[in-house]
Design a protein around this nucleic acid. Structure first.
Length: 111
DNA sequence: TGAATGACTCGAT
DNA sequence: GATCGAGCCATTC
């Protein structure tokens, strides 16, 4: 099964770098890894992040539209929204309304 | 080995 | 402005 030694670890690392109360997009992570075209792999990696330690804040990862696309994959769809709101991220209709303000781009920040 | 999948993104209509 | 289709890449069956 997963050889947890590849892309996944890299994705997990970046996601764990997301500051508290911030969110990022799959494309941003993929771009940071130098694989902007592999945005789908980021989502795939998230699928494998379940049960990872330390826990991967996948709830801080949303799609380009700021939509909680992965909420369905959480223990409960509401869990993702709860976690985000708990961190100060305003989520309405499963969407980050202030996405521009809480968006965290590792590439732009020079990570 | 080949084919299928996926929590995405971009471009075109 | 919204909707549809194609591309892309790593992992899995």
């Amino acid at each position: 099964m997963t050889q947890k030694n590849s892309f996944y670890l890299r994705v997990f690392d970046v996601v764990r770098l997301i500051p508290h109360g911030r969110v990022t997009s799959y494309g941003a992570i993929a771009a940071y890894l130098g694989a902007r075209s592999s945005s789908r792999l980021v989502g795939w990696a998230m699928n494998a992040s379940h049960g990872e330690l330390p826990p991967v804040p996948a709830h801080r990862v949303v799609n380009r539209n700021g939509d909680l696309s992965g909420k369905a994959h959480f223990s409960s769809p509401e869990r993702m929204k709860e976690l985000l709101e708990n961190e100060g991220v305003q989520v309405v209709n499963d969407r980050v309304i202030n996405f521009d303000e809480v968006f965290w781009d590792p590439v732009s920040l020079g990570y």
